[in-house]
């Protein structure tokens, strides 16, 4: 018989690390990440699905974490902005190309929308054919569902182009940071 609960214990792999938590079933994934797991990089700007600040990857796909209950991701893997950079195995981190691009292109001001943009763009750029030059339509589609009140978007779009260029296999090879096509980025 199916159990009907008000509280559940769940296990979620967050940024590669299995995490356990016991939560009221009504806890939104955004709140669980922020307040129960202490991953405050994921932000909450509206809690009704419009702004995209809370976007995280569930099994690699961008979703609004304010529109998912934490219990629903039991057994799934979640990537937040804290998990975008890669360990350099020397105690430091190698930033994801989109993180680099945001800094280089001044694509953030207050930074509140930034985590949602970063994970959305990272997923978008990883899903596309990296060898092709990115089109304006692709850029618009990738950034189109997130709100930013500060930047007017111009530099965010610029950062997407920048990151896409950096992720092209040829570019990626000679930066040495990340090999194209190995699925790492």
């Amino acid at each position: 018989m199916t159990s009907v609960d008000t509280e559940r214990s769940i296990t979620v792999t967050v940024n590669g690390v299995p995490r356990k938590a016991t939560l009221p079933v009504r806890r939104l994934l955004s709140d669980a990440l922020r307040h129960d797991l202490g991953l405050t990089g994921t932000h909450v700007g509206c809690e009704h699905g419009v702004c995209g600040a809370c976007t995280v990857l569930v099994d690699g796909t961008p979703v609004r974490s304010c529109l998912v209950f934490a219990v629903q991701v039991d057994g799934a893997s979640v990537t937040t902005v804290e998990g975008l950079a890669r360990d350099d195995h020397q105690g430091g981190q190698v930033l994801h190309p989109v993180q680099e691009a945001f800094r280089e292109c001044h694509a953030l001001q207050c930074g509140f929308c930034t985590p949602g943009f970063l994970v959305t763009i990272a997923a978008g750029l990883e899903a596309r054919d990296r060898s092709a030059e990115i089109t304006e339509e692709e850029v618009d589609e990738i950034v189109g569902g997130n709100l930013c009140r500060c930047t007017g978007y111009a530099n965010i779009k610029k950062a997407v182009r920048h990151a896409a260029a950096a992720m092209r296999p040829a570019e990626a090879d000679h930066t040495g940071h990340f090999g194209g096509g190995d699925g790492a980025w």
Binding site: M1, T2, S3, V4, D5, T6, R8, P24, V25, R26, L28, D31, E47, H48, F69, V71, Q72
Partner: peptide, 25 residues
């Protein structure tokens, strides 16, 4: 903006889902 409390079930089959729906009214 937080949901009011509710009970939660995630049945593993359609029949179970219908059972829970029926039981919960």
């Amino acid at each position: 903006m937080k949901p009011a409390p509710f009970r939660y079930a995630d049945p593993g089959s359609l029949d179970e889902a219908l059972d829970v729906l029926a039981a919960e009214g």
